[in-house]
Design a protein around this nucleic acid. Structure first.
Lengths: 210, 210
DNA sequence: GTCTATATTTAGATAGAC
DNA sequence: GTCTATCTAAATATAGAC
């Protein structure tokens, strides 16, 4: 807005986006050093920033971790909401699961999640942030299940809340397993089998007015 | 054996079981302080031990973490092997899952697993320990699935390796979700639904020679 | 095997110059 | 808003007494 009198640097963005750079550096540190190795100094190194900026902008290392958790949660929620929005078959749900898995893997966000998850044991604020971030998972999956079952007799009999919780848990556990194991074939193989299950059940679904 | 000339203390076990006490203290520290707060000094505090003993007996904090991971893995493997040994119905598998969940919860071993999982990002030895410890999960579940499907047409068509991987992932993810969330009802509710699914499929299984 | 120092490094956090 | 310098606490790890 104003071109004069501001304390921010005149050049494009070097000052304005420091918070964003700190969060990005925090993500990088979590991915490469883990929660135990993520100190203000480690974060600063990963973003080529000054260590004192962590405290100026976020008050403490934990404050920056919380901001990183919220940022990651928001990105994930947006991704999931977008992809799951028009899923109305089981096969489609499996397909979206695979697509999301690919994105999570390429972003390395599972590692960030794992580390913040571990860090949340000693910080109630961090636990609240991560818990709030995982709520949408189950909700979005449950809505997809409701669409999948709409019009079938199962609509009222299947406990979609439980199934949604199970699917979210399965996805989380699978991401963790995959991050541990170099052998990514197990995940690929599982998705292939889930494809088959999805298509099979989809085919049976419409004609079951028992 | 020999009653004289030993360097160990004369009293019952104060010297002999120091390693075990260190491992127990390490578990306690992981549960209460997390991997980030688990230092040699923190461990010593939790077991009322001297800090230097960590280095004498295990060389480093990471060495003690590895030993703790192996110990936990062994306990878990024994528990799973015992409980899964004679499972031959889906309902039985669900029932065992619930029983194991109860034991994991009461032992607080999920927290230990989470923290070591996070710590394994910066220690290849730790990752190897934890990976080796989770191998038996999938294997034991797959063997149970084979017994469940034995004699049915599904025996050759169902990819039990994939399903076993999925069940293990589901269990891991569910444990993590449960450890985050104060609301344990979701897990209880899920097990109730799984009971129903298990009994339903069990009832269909024998008479399906298509 | 266990303890008391202690050497060295690194951590979180702040004050004050710019 | 960012940097340097610095205080203080806590970390790993070891040497040496017991």
């Amino acid at each position: 807005m104003s071109a004069t009198g501001r304390t921010k640097p005149a050049s494009s963005d070097a000052g304005a986006d420091t918070k964003a750079r700190l969060i990005a550096a925090c993500r990088a540190s979590l991915q490469q050093e883990g929660i135990a190795g993520t100190s203000a100094r480690a974060i600063a190194r990963h973003g080529d920033l000054n260590q004192a900026l962590v405290f100026y902008h976020f008050g403490s290392v934990d404050g920056l971790l919380q901001a990183t958790a919220r940022e990651d949660s928001a990105q994930r929620a947006a991704l999931y909401a977008e992809r799951l929005a028009d899923v109305d078959t089981l096969a489609g749900l499996v397909s979206v699961g695979r697509a999301i898995h690919d994105v999570e893997t390429s972003r390395g966000s599972t590692a960030v999640l794992t580390q913040i998850l571990a860090g949340s044991i000693s910080s109630t604020e961090l636990r609240a942030s991560i818990l709030a971030g995982m709520e949408p998972w189950t909700v979005l999956v449950e809505q997809a299940l409701d669409r999948i079952l709409a019009g079938t007799v199962l609509a009222s009999t299947v406990p979609t809340a439980d199934i949604a919780f199970a699917i979210s848990s399965l996805f989380l556990g699978m991401e963790l397993m995959a991050s541990l194991d170099a052998d990514q074939d197990r995940v690929a193989s599982l998705f292939t089998s889930l494809d088959a299950v999805g298509m099979f059940v989809d085919a049976l679904l419409p004609r079951s007015p028992t």
